[in-house]
């Protein structure tokens, strides 16, 4: 099976969606990225990334949860699908494998 490719930005967004759990929607994801990663990714970029992730089947969305601070408008809430979870796991395992290949003596050197 051809594995859907997960870009770096997509990976970060997908992880954030997973981390925010029930309250993952476009604005909250953008803000979380801004606050926690210190990385200002513009709102439209996050928006299209989420669209792309849904296209690829890594997240699914439903409408809900209007709050006062957003003028009583509904939000589109995202959750990570099973495929998304797999993709994330795979990503992590690939990285871990790569990390493991680096001799411990060297990583210790970096940390020091």
């Amino acid at each position: 099976m051809k594995r859907a490719f997960l870009g770096e930005l997509e990976e970060v967004v997908l992880l954030t969606v997973a981390a925010l759990q029930e309250s993952a929607y476009c604005a909250s994801v953008t803000q979380a990225l801004d606050e926690q990663m210190g990385r200002s990714i513009s709102f439209p970029t996050v928006h299209t990334t989420l669209q792309r992730l849904e296209e690829k089947g890594f997240v699914s969305s439903r409408m809900g949860g209007a709050t006062a601070e957003r003028g009583g408008r509904q939000k589109r809430l995202f959750t990570v699908t099973a495929a998304g979870q797999r993709a994330l796991m795979e990503c992590r395992s690939v990285r871990t494998q790569l990390w493991d290949k680096i001799p411990i003596s060297i990583t210790q050197l970096w940390e020091a």
């Binding site: 929607y25 604005a27 953008t30 709102f43 928006h47 601070e69 957003r70 003028g71 408008r73 939000k75």
Partner: peptide, 14 residues
């Protein structure tokens, strides 16, 4: 329209 309007308003406050 609706969700974008809401999201952007929230972002604007932020």
């Amino acid at each position: 329209e609706d969700e974008l309007q809401g999201d952007l308003q929230e972002m604007y406050t932020y």
